[in-house]
Design a protein around this nucleic acid. Structure first.
Lengths: 230, 230
DNA sequence: ACAAAACCGATACCTAAGTATCATCGACGT
DNA sequence: ACGTCGATGATACTTAGGTATCGGTTTTGT
């Protein structure tokens, strides 16, 4: 336990690894704790900080929502039975808002339909009190791993969207046809323009997208538009 | 209800849609029912067949396992509490054997950890008795939809694997470098052969893979090797 | 041992892709 | 009104990709 804490402390104050903020391997993850029971909050806070993570506690879903979230790997330990806005409500709201934060539910009074709904909606874990600390800690680790990969993915997608948005309408059209494997003359036919003009658009598009090859571009497009694949 | 049954009957005896067996839209899906309670089996069998699906009933996990499964869209209604091999055991076994059949759990005596485990392992639904017929029927519909897409996917992947397996070792190496976006001369450099030889391998590879373009090939490769992407 | 296939490479030829330069036209904003 | 940018296209040139045909060696399976 103590070693773990030291390790996190060390990497926290250590040098950047050269990969930039995207690697996130030198950042202390945040564990949000939302529970209306003050004693639960405090004991979880202690447990989480003792493992080297950064805890942030809230007494209600509303309090959590009004708090700005920083872009670091994080997860949410969420009581199902909250006054006003319940844990499941909050999860639904995140889904609606396209916010992907891994959720670990805990509850004293839960039932099977509740747990099934939570898991269907993508929860990492659904624990009933009382539970062993290690079970929760394992779940947190998994959740944070997932958060890491989600953040990495989102940052990549944001960059791609930025590139794509910088394309002119024509360049976007040309790109769509290039990733479908059409030749320049076919693209020209589709768009009713000459082959040489297609080459001009295509070249500019490739530079704007920072794509080094068609293969590269196809992979970018798959990330931008996942349903472009069967 | 009656209309539904007639509809399924109609498509069953109707003509093929011209898309081949892959479309599966003219095939009656199979619903496997595994429960040790004979009265449950019979009532579910009646319910399922009344909806136009083809029920197959089993009294134990072992009986189900020894029965050959046909390649049609299907799902499994599985009692959690079975003697010998439990429902969760069976699910684990399917996961181990890479068999992807959508599972709907039903149980009279279940708890939350059980349901959470089942859902984590990919179950479509986890119902506690008693439940309304329509809830189960909705779950079955979803499960069969999933099965349809899984079958479609698997058949596609099988075809691709067949093509890939027909490639010579060298052709496979060339393909790997082509989908990474390398030019022929670079590929030659990597493999220590001349550019013209790369062209020969590449041409033969493209024909064997039935790929009409590099874009096409990249998409094929993504299906064959999903982790080739970030 | 012999045939088949894989592997390698050269010449020749054609098509496709990419770049650079120049030019025209219209839309949009200052 | 002027400048910028997007879109279009022509000429000219270079590089890359693809095929066909020929030849050779090595490996492999029967």
């Amino acid at each position: 336990m103590n070693m773990l804490r030291q390790m996190y402390l060390h990497v926290h104050i250590g040098q950047n690894d050269g990969l930039g903020a995207l690697s996130m391997s030198n950042i202390v993850p945040t564990v949000y704790i939302v529970d209306d029971d003050i004693s639960v909050r405090e004991s979880l806070e202690e447990l989480v900080s003792h493992e080297g993570w950064h805890p942030e506690i809230f007494g209600s879903a509303e309090a959590f929502l009004s708090h700005p979230r920083t872009p670091v790997p994080s997860c949410l330990i969420l009581d199902v039975n909250l006054p006003d806005l319940s844990g499941l409500d909050l999860q639904r709201r995140f889904a609606f808002d396209q916010i992907d934060i891994p959720i670990i539910f805990i509850t004293g009074y839960g039932d099977i339909p509740m747990s099934v709904q939570a898991m269907k909606a993508g929860a990492v874990e659904f624990l009933t009190k009382p539970f062993h600390d290690e079970v929760l800690l394992t779940a947190i680790s998994q959740a944070i791993e997932r958060s890491r990969s989600v953040l990495h993915d989102e940052s990549e997608t944001r960059t791609l969207r930025g590139c794509y948005a910088s394309l002119s309408p024509r360049e976007q059209e040309v790109m769509a046809l290039v990733v479908r494997g059409l030749m320049n003359k076919q693209i020209g036919g589709e768009l009713g323009i000459s082959e040489i003009t297609v080459k001009a658009h295509r070249g500019k598009m490739m530079r704007k997208m920072k794509a080094s090859s068609v293969a590269d571009l196809v992979n970018m497009n798959a990330k931008l538009d996942p349903k472009s694949r069967g």
